[in-house]
Design a protein around this nucleic acid. Structure first.
Lengths: 317, 317
DNA sequence: ATAGTCCAATACTTCCTGTCTATGGCAAAT
DNA sequence: ATTTGCCATAGACAGGAAGTATTGGACTAT
């Protein structure tokens, strides 16, 4: 039924809608008016729907016609951009992708991203640079970075956020800590000693969300030590300043142990982020791949009986 | 550059990728093999990118080719569905849209939805039915409803959720309540008298989220009265059972007053929801319109200094 | 009234191009 | 060495998109 509709027709439909007049639309298309009229009419009879109302004072899309016009604009845009991107990738004229990352993101996610990119864009190089989340976001806003792998939550409509992974939050303590003899530790016995945190300034939204999750569990903590890197956090824990909540997959240094939490199921989340008005042509394609990977694997929702809280969402959004 | 690429080519590209072989792809397309070969080759030279690697044991898409194949599949799918939808709307063969709604959703959102639908699909009718959120979701899952206008949070990957509106949460009390003399009420003086709530069974996730927001403000409440409708909530408040948290735009009955909260900025959110595997062809188009309306108006993020918490997200997701 | 203007639709011709058949080339299998 | 399977090339042909010329309808100005 729609098999006969070609890109040519979409171009004609858009032109007529914009010009509001067959004659001027034909001029703009460097086409004769009869040819344009016929093509539009052919399509209308082909799909069995009137797309335009011809009045003496102009040609207006019908409501359905307007829907088709919207579709046509999007589709024409998609075509030019896919093939533009393909050519840029093929010729290597695509600029190097500048990727930021938070040091709290496990390096395997960076490797996943990197191999995904290398697989799809073998001629294209990647420039990595680490930093705290706020700084990375600032640099993306300035246009100094194209995208980033960061810890959620990331707020606001200006970012495109594609979830990559969830990791349980666990307690990080010394191996000689009495609590390390348990296989799991309860929140109530943990909270009084929970004093080591990620630097709130590095990612205020994540800090606020963590405090909110603690509040939801009727726990209030005393934030006495903060650190800007996983290494520093373990330094503080090793030196006896307290216990920290860390990602289960954080690279563990010597004399450090992690224990799961009992009674709650808290997770931290990693995401691929880029500016919604970013110009780099590879980003939507990469995002689409992460999206596919998500929709294929997310099926198995565990639905545990323990309260599942996640750092995923920014509660101030 | 990509101007020469037609839907025909996209079909050919997909067929070759699926058949892994020019000859068999041509058979499947009821086309001669040379014609197919030539068309693919023409496109490759036209856009300047090799899409397929011809090996002795088969034809494989290059990485860029795979990207184009993905694009082609999506674009072909889009074309058939847009015109199928257009025809169904035009001929009135589109079935009536069965819309569910929660009674806590302000009726103006239903009217917005209704006028949007009527504007785009004038020949198509709407069947409205109200109920509590859980019930509406169940009916959508069973296929008895096509879509719904509900209060967030709505969890899970099986729902497509498009945000419609945010409304401040306010305290609902009797007009003769001492607190009603203030222009704003503080959470600390409010919480001890906050005893009237929406029925938790009607929307467990929203109830849990509200309790979490209260916990985040170091407040724990005693849920002594619950009601299933805004009317019943006001009934309980009028009869002196306590104060309720309600949407600012809830239709107010006589002797009832609402007061904003001081120190926090809490909001409840309304969304357009439908099943991600729903077959009704109008839904993606409606969603697209809400999405457009959002992206056009959301620019002005207030960024107040008060803590902004929202019922928007399901924290157990 | 009537001529003039504007615009879409129709009739017919031209020419481009997508498809076909036939064939060549190449590598692996027998 | 021959056969087989597959893709590329060459030349002929037909379908249809676009062009030119024209008609027809509706409004306007004199």
């Amino acid at each position: 039924m729609s098999e006969q509709v070609e890109f040519r027709h979409l171009k004609y439909i858009v032109a007529v809608a914009e010009a509001g007049n067959f004659t001027r639309a034909a001029e703009r298309l460097f086409l004769s008016q009869p040819s344009l009229s016929k093509q539009i009419k052919d399509i209308e009879t082909e799909i069995g729907v009137q797309l335009f109302e011809r009045h003496r004072d102009g040609v207006y899309p019908t409501p359905i016609g307007q829907m088709v016009v919207d579709y046509a604009v999007a589709t024409l845009y998609g075509r030019t951009h896919v093939f533009k991107l393909a050519k840029e990738i093929f010729s290597g004229t695509i600029p190097p992708l500048r990727v930021g990352f938070s040091c709290f993101v496990n390096s395997r996610h960076l490797q996943t991203f990197r191999s995904l990119y290398a697989k799809h864009f073998p001629l294209c190089s990647v420039q990595l640079s680490g930093g705290d989340t706020v700084h990375i976001l600032q640099r993306m806003e300035r246009g100094d970075l194209d995208c980033a792998v960061l810890c959620l939550p990331i707020a606001g409509p200006k970012w495109v956020v594609e979830h990559i992974a969830s990791t349980p939050l666990v307690a990080c303590m010394r191996t000689d800590d009495p609590l390390s003899e348990r296989t799991e530790v309860g929140l109530q016995e943990l909270v009084p000693r929970l004093t080591v945190f990620r630097d709130p300034d590095g990612h205020p939204a994540a800090h606020a969300r963590l405090l909110e999750m603690l509040a939801a569990a009727n726990s209030s903590v005393h934030v006495s030590c903060t650190a800007a890197t996983p290494h520093d956090i373990q330094l503080l824990v090793r030196d006896g300043y307290g216990i920290a909540l860390v990602n289960e997959d954080m690279p563990l240094e010597s004399d450090m142990a992690i224990r799961h939490l009992y009674g709650v199921q808290w997770t931290a989340d990693t995401a691929f982020v880029y500016s919604s008005d970013s110009g780099h042509p590879a980003l939507p394609h990469i995002q689409r791949h992460f999206y596919k990977r998500n929709t294929e694997t997310v099926r198995k929702q565990p639905q545990a009986d323990r309260p599942q809280l996640s750092l995923k969402f920014d509660i101030t959004a």
